[in-house]
Nucleic acid binder design. Structure first.
Lengths: 144, 144
DNA sequence: CAATATTAAGATAAAAAGGTCTTAAAATAC
DNA sequence: GTATTTTAAGACCTTTTTATCTTAATATTG
């Protein structure tokens, strides 16, 4: 469903949303260690997210990655668009080029219903809201 | 969700279920052409499915691939197990090693509900039944 | 039995995804 | 201003996935 890149990206952003502040940024090393993500690979992903203004960063002493208020108002779908593009989410589950309600594959309907629900959640929930939800329900982002 | 291999495989099997009979087998060339699947790649996939007794084949003149009654009684999930394994279907959407109801990732619940529905369909519907459903509702298997 | 049509099998190649390393650039602290 | 810490950028490597090609084996037809 998501590429490995995207999975790593989502987890990293949500972790930053929960743990980082303007005054306490988080470096790649720490992020990679706590989330069990290959360090250099994560660095690459964070670069892309930074360039696309999904996360913020600053170099030098006490630098690192963090989320501004602005960043927290972005919705989750943005992360996926940036890292995977949207095609991956919308393409037919059997790989057909045209698969819609009038030319449906045998699984279009059951899949479409789920997608509507799931993508609506990703579209409607901001990174900040997701972070809060994770905190409240003690959802998991790290490998145990 | 499914690998390209698996997408091709499902489409090919369902097409065979609809169009082939014991007396009128379908060659790789025809299958690949009608379904727009790379010929040699499809041949490989059909080999695997044959070896796992999901489809039947015979060589020589008027040979080709086809489904016996037995094959039509196999459920759809079998195709996925053979071509993709089950891990791909059950693994956490964020890639976490442990993600269950007690250690859930932020999207576990919404995804799990869909999976239950979808996989139940794949488990419970035989290839033959799927073929009939496709015929009845005129569902699509080819690229238009 | 010979010719032909077809799958089976395995080697190989190409492309994409995942992951690593090195150097540059920038910011900060002293 | 220099040393240090950190991200930025890009080159490079590895693995997996997707795709192709060639030859062998097998069945059928005449």
């Amino acid at each position: 469903m998501f590429s490995t890149t995207c999975k790593y990206g989502i987890r990293a952003v949500l972790y930053l949303a929960i743990k980082s502040t303007n005054d306490s940024k988080i470096g790649v090393d720490e992020l990679a260690d706590t989330l069990c993500i290959p360090k250099h690979f994560l660095a690459k992903i964070l670069q892309v997210l930074t360039k696309n203004k999904v996360v913020s960063s600053s170099k030098g002493r006490h630098g690192g990655f963090y989320l501004k208020k602005r960043n927290k108002q972005i919705n989750l779908m943005k992360i996926i668009e940036v890292l995977d593009g949207t095609n991956r989410l919308t393409c037919c589950i059997l790989g057909l080029e045209t698969c819609d309600s009038t030319h449906a594959c045998p699984y279009h309907n059951i899949v479409q219903q789920f997608r509507n629900d799931f993508y609506q959640k990703l579209e409607n929930e901001t990174i900040g809201e997701a972070a809060q939800r994770i905190d409240e329900h003690d959802f998991n982002l790290k490998n145990l």
